[in-house]
Design a protein around this nucleic acid. Structure first.
Length: 399
DNA sequence: TCTGGGGTCCTTAATCTA
DNA sequence: TCTGTAGATTAAGGACCC
């Protein structure tokens, strides 16, 4: 398919600023202006998932162990993530983005790509489109976003990272090479700590240096595929496709124990609970998978996975659990204390229709969810009396 | 030093099949 | 039928991202 007239597309990338932390500050005015770290609580195993900009002033970053974050700023507000709350806010933002264009691709809970080509008659220049995206998000939700606009996804994404928070950066095709040249190679997509080390050994630190490196030399050290990807990126080439509906390819749940576990009964129960969670999500989304994956992490961070392709796809918690437990017992795994255990399914049956976000909101709670909520209500009512509760859950009798 | 949880994609090795 | 081999598929691990 040839694209008519236009020389290139305009792709926008939107990134909500310190998303989890901003949601908390929005809901709790008393947290505004204070350092907020969402993630594990001090004294527990885990890391910071999101840090407010006030917290970043203390050097707190996402993926930092909480112990370290606490050392840097004991006065910060530490909170556990409330994913339901963030999903609600995210849905609102995506609905707003769809008032700009229907071609919106969710890259994560707080990031989206938009194809804004051809919107000039309606909304103006790319800069004006970017300002309009930010304005609608802010007036609709109170959240700030950083937006980058460029001829493809890579440039749009690097643009949104360029000025943060509440930033807007437009890069025209003519500016692409100069925009990229001084950047550290670490800014490129898919280039993490391991690959950085390799580039370091090759004496390549900036995109400009990468451009002049012979492709054959990169291939020697990185393999053909990765070398080609980074080389293309260095010249600003990348996909400009925005795919509104991406289907998920797997569902998984995992948990890290407060202390490493030796007792098989504990692992058995944990795995059963995780399998039930996976099954519930699968049923809600109308998916059945044939491949069951067991993930296990031992003391010392040694991680293994074992998977098994069943004859028939399933979303039944007993079947998922049974397969996973067999993988645990028969997977020739080391006999060591277990730090983390997880289970997932993938390998969907063909022709299962994709479930859209909108479909998910319209679905009623499953009976088991409903029952759990009712049990909680009963327990709280017993303790505090009826006046304590104002939940919007329909009180159905179980049957 | 301490490293969560939920994903995707890639590479490599083993196994199956033509 | 045996043997070797190439290509496809599967399993496991690793890197990366948010």
């Amino acid at each position: 398919m040839r694209r008519p007239q236009q020389k290139h597309r305009w792709i926008a990338h939107m990134d909500l600023d310190a998303f989890f932390a901003s949601c908390e500050q929005l809901e709790h005015p008393e947290y505004r202006g204070r350092p907020v770290a969402v993630g594990a609580l001090p004294g527990h195993r885990g890391v910071v998932a999101a840090a407010s900009y006030e917290a970043r002033k203390f050097g707190i970053r996402s993926a930092m162990p909480v112990s370290e974050a606490y050392r840097r700023c004991p006065d910060a507000v530490f909170l556990r993530p409330d994913m339901e709350k963030y999903r609600r806010a995210s849905r609102q933002v995506f609905q707003i983005l769809e008032t700009i264009t229907p071609v919106v691709e969710a890259a994560s809970i707080d990031e989206a790509y938009l194809d804004v080509s051809g919107l000039d008659k309606l909304l103006g220049t790319p800069g004006e489109i970017g300002r309009e995206i930010k304005r609608r998000i802010f007036t609709g939700t109170g959240l700030t976003a950083s937006v980058g606009i460029g001829p493809n996804r890579l440039i749009a994404k690097l643009g949104s990272e360029y000025r943060k928070p509440d930033g807007l950066t437009v890069i025209t095709p003519e500016q692409v090479l100069d925009f990229l040249a001084p950047m550290p190679v670490a800014n490129l997509r898919g280039l993490g700590p391991q690959t950085q080390k390799i580039f370091g050994r090759l004496g390549i630190r900036t995109v400009e240096q990468l451009r002049t490196a012979p492709l054959s030399r990169l291939e020697e050290h990185l393999g053909k595929k990765a070398a080609a990807s980074f080389h293309r990126q260095a010249f600003g080439f990348a996909s400009d496709e925005v795919v509104p509906e991406r289907r998920r390819k797997s569902i998984s749940k995992e948990t890290t124990f407060a202390a490493d576990v030796r007792d098989n009964d504990v692992l058995h129960d944990a795995l059963r609970g995780l399998a039930a969670d996976v099954a519930r999500t699968a049923r809600r989304e109308g998916l059945s998978g044939s491949v069951v994956t067991l993930k296990i992490r031992f003391e010392g961070f040694e991680t293994h996975t074992r998977q098994y392709r069943r004859d028939t796809p399933t979303h039944d918690e007993r079947a998922i659990f049974k397969t996973a437990w067999q993988l645990f017992l028969g997977g020739k795994l080391p006999k060591k204390p277990v730090r983390l255990i997880g289970v997932g399914i993938s390998g969907w049956e063909e022709d299962q229709p994709a479930v859209t976000q909108a479909d998910l909101f319209d679905q009623p709670l499953e009976k088991e969810d409903n029952q759990r909520v009712l049990q909680t209500i009963d327990a709280v009512t017993e303790k505090f009396g009826k006046g304590m509760l104002q939940l919007g859950v329909p009180r159905k009798t179980d049957s």
